[in-house]
């Protein structure tokens, strides 16, 4: 029993890692631009397909493919900012609707280019860390955990220490005052969108060999990300990370001891409960929607 608990905790840690990457990106975009990006799950999907194209099909090294996934999806994010969110800056619902439109476009493009069948990506490593007979962690999963820790720490340092980070946080708190201080709103929006999208992309890239990659894989990811950002508090990066951990543990344990559908219901109920009792979530203060 103890071993089952330990194994489930390891699985939950892995799930928390990639969920945190996706949710933090979503929160960053919402915080800086005030837009709810419904296409975030599809950015994750694009990252996974970057690995399909570069690593599985073209034979480049796995980590190179994942890095390209991060940068490529980040650039797609910049494109979204320029073409969709900037013209709709004064219309938050418009940005949301436009991102739904973009989601449909990305899904169609993926299914035209790669087909709707599920891609099987060979793992980049077969190694497994064995802690005991029934407690183990595939190294492929460890990559996701380590990658998430490194990237989120880097993001945290970037936001707290660098000038760009200051500018980003300033325009998240008060866009007008930030603009008056000479901070370019367009510039910060571009950076936020690159980071936010890139994080979703790299999450997709790193998990691609571990999940089923197909054009509609973003749906469950975006639902999870919404649960996490609501529970954590819309606009709070720390809240998103903590909520990702809580959600991943609840979901993984319920899946192990009951079944997946019940776990989904529990997750959604958790979000509904937070919306009813404390709509600002655990850490949220801003109410921009």
């Amino acid at each position: 029993m103890l071993e089952l608990l330990a194994q489930t905790a390891l699985n939950a840690t892995y799930a928390a890692s990639y969920i945190a990457l996706v949710a933090v990106g979503l929160v960053l975009i919402f915080g800086v631009m005030g837009v709810v990006n419904f296409a975030h799950g599809e950015l994750y999907m694009l990252g996974a397909y970057a690995v399909v194209a570069l690593y599985a099909d073209a034979g480049f090294p796995f980590f190179l493919a994942a890095a390209v996934g991060l940068i490529f999806v980040g650039i797609v994010g910049i494109g979204m900012e320029r073409t969709l969110f900037r013209p709709l800056r004064d219309n938050p619902l418009g940005g949301l609707v436009a991102s739904i439109g973009f989601l449909l476009i990305l899904q169609s493009l993926a299914s035209v280019w790669f087909g709707v069948r599920m891609e099987h990506i060979p793992p980049s490593t077969q190694q497994i860390l064995r802690f005991s007979d029934s407690v183990s962690l595939p190294v492929q999963r460890l990559y996701v955990i380590v990658g998430a820790v490194i990237l989120l720490t880097a993001l945290w340092l970037f936001l707290k220490r660098s000038r760009f980070g200051w500018a980003l946080r300033a325009s998240a708190q008060d866009p007008e005052a930030a603009a008056l201080q000479g901070i370019s709103i367009n510039q910060t929006a571009r950076i936020a969108m690159f980071i936010g999208a890139g994080l979703a992309g790299v999450a997709g890239a790193l998990t691609a060999p571990l999940v089923r990659t197909f054009p509609y894989m973003g749906h469950s990811v975006i639902v999870t990300a919404f649960i996490v950002i609501i529970v954590g508090g819309v606009g709070s990066l720390e809240g998103a990370v903590l909520a990702a951990v809580i959600y991943a543990f609840v979901h993984t344990f319920v899946t192990t001891f009951f079944d997946g559908v019940i776990a989904d219901i529990v997750g959604l109920s958790l979000m509904l409960l937070v919306l009813i009792v404390k709509p600002t979530g655990m850490f949220g203060t801003a109410d921009r929607a």
């Binding site: 969709l84 418009g94 609707v97 439109g101 449909l104």
Partner: peptide, 20 residues
């Protein structure tokens, strides 16, 4: 057939941008 969601996506974006 496969491009129909893309059509909906484009229409949605164009109408928010140009015909709000």
């Amino acid at each position: 057939d496969q491009l129909r969601p893309m059509f909906y996506g484009l229409i949605l974006i164009c109408s928010v941008l140009f015909l709000p």
